[in-house]
């Protein structure tokens, strides 16, 4: 493969991923509203387009037309920088997530991942940690007490849950013996999904993922009753939309990560025994990945409309006194498992 082929293939893949992501993000908002409506015996958006399917575009159009308000008391440069950081971090994480097995097209073997990096998982963890800067900056730069409180809460919450998240991932890495996402997926062949092997780790990771994405029941940085809107109180128009998009993009990343680390990634258990042609297998595997991600996303939304918000002290208690020890327990358990089975 010469350099130009790699560049062209990469550009195609980037376009594919970005388009899919943006569409998913906007339709995630639509489904969030629909599912919330169903949970509450309502109908949900149904005015714009067929069953309200054009609602996301209407929303974006509205946000485009809104006035971009920058408060007098804000630090203007950082106020503008914050949503850019948040959105940039959210989208760059997609680079290392594999959404299918390597495919053979026209004699080229193409991995279905933008960057098949050795330290993929580390990059994901590093980038998601960077995301907290965007939120903290926005809280600091807005010149508003509500935003500041939201920003501070967010950084404290993210740092706390980063720990248990990291230790949960460590359990996965012990088994896969690699930081490459593709390798982690391959290590979960059959029903050897990490979710079944290390359920405690799965739960701690899942809970931490909720906390990292600021989703209910851990959406304290933007708790409306206490903080008006939290860190994005002073944002409007497309800057607000950037935060909004980033939140949902993060949700997709988290779902993708959960699928990759614990639910076997693009693997369909024992697909080789079905006797399908290799093309069908690849198609099914890509489909399986998106299906699994969709299911986890549905779970995210489902939980949001079922469980009320934690208090801040409960959040911290849960993070440090429950999740962190559980992650350690999980690590020990996996270590013993690896030792025994090897």
């Amino acid at each position: 493969m010469d350099l130009w082929t790699i560049i062209i293939i990469s550009i195609i893949k980037i376009l594919f991923v970005v388009t899919i992501t943006l569409l998913t993000v906007s339709y995630l908002v639509y489904f969030e509203r629909k599912i919330s409506a169903w949970v509450q015996d309502r109908i949900g958006p149904n005015r714009v387009g067929w069953y309200g399917l054009l609602q996301p575009f209407a929303d974006v159009f509205k946000l485009f037309l809104k006035e971009d308000i920058v408060p007098d008391a804000s630090i203007k440069s950082i106020h503008t920088l914050a949503p850019i950081i948040t959105l940039f971090v959210a989208f760059s994480t997609y680079a290392v997530l594999p959404w299918g097995p390597p495919v053979n097209i026209f004699g080229y073997e193409i991995p279905l991942v933008l960057a098949d990096v050795n330290s993929g998982i580390l990059i994901v963890l590093a980038l998601t940690s960077l995301g907290v800067y965007g939120i903290t900056f926005s809280g600091w730069a807005s010149g508003s007490k509500y935003s500041l409180l939201g920003g501070v809460r967010s950084s404290a919450q993210m740092i706390s849950y980063e720990i248990s998240m990291g230790f949960s991932v460590a359990g996965v890495l012990l088994i896969s013996e690699s930081l490459r996402p593709a390798a982690i997926i391959e290590s979960q062949s059959g029903w050897m999904w990490n979710a079944f092997i290390q359920p405690i780790g799965f739960i701690t990771f899942l809970v931490s993922a909720f906390a990292e994405t600021n989703r209910l029941p851990f959406d304290l940085p933007e708790a409306e009753p206490e903080l008006v809107g939290g860190y994005h109180t002073e944002y409007s128009s497309m800057k607000f939309a950037a935060f909004f998009l980033a939140e949902y993009a993060n949700m997709i990343i988290s779902s993708g990560l959960i699928v990759t680390l614990y639910l076997g990634g693009w693997q369909v258990p024992y697909i080789e025994t079905f006797g399908l042609s290799s093309g069908w297998v690849t198609m099914m595997q890509i489909g399986a990945f998106f299906f699994k991600v969709g299911a986890v996303l549905f779970f995210f939304i489902w939980v949001r409309w079922s469980i009320p918000r934690f208090k801040y002290n409960q959040l911290m208690n849960l993070g440090w006194k429950v999740m962190f020890p559980l992650a350690l327990v999980n690590l020990v358990w996996v270590a013993i498992l690896v030792m025994l089975l090897n």
């Binding site: 599912i35 949970v39 015996d41 309502r42 109908i43 079922s306």
Partner: peptide, 11 residues
């Protein structure tokens, strides 16, 4: 809440 999703709407 999951059960609720399949119940008739009031809207």
């Amino acid at each position: 809440t999951f059960k609720k999703m399949f119940q008739p709407r009031f809207t």
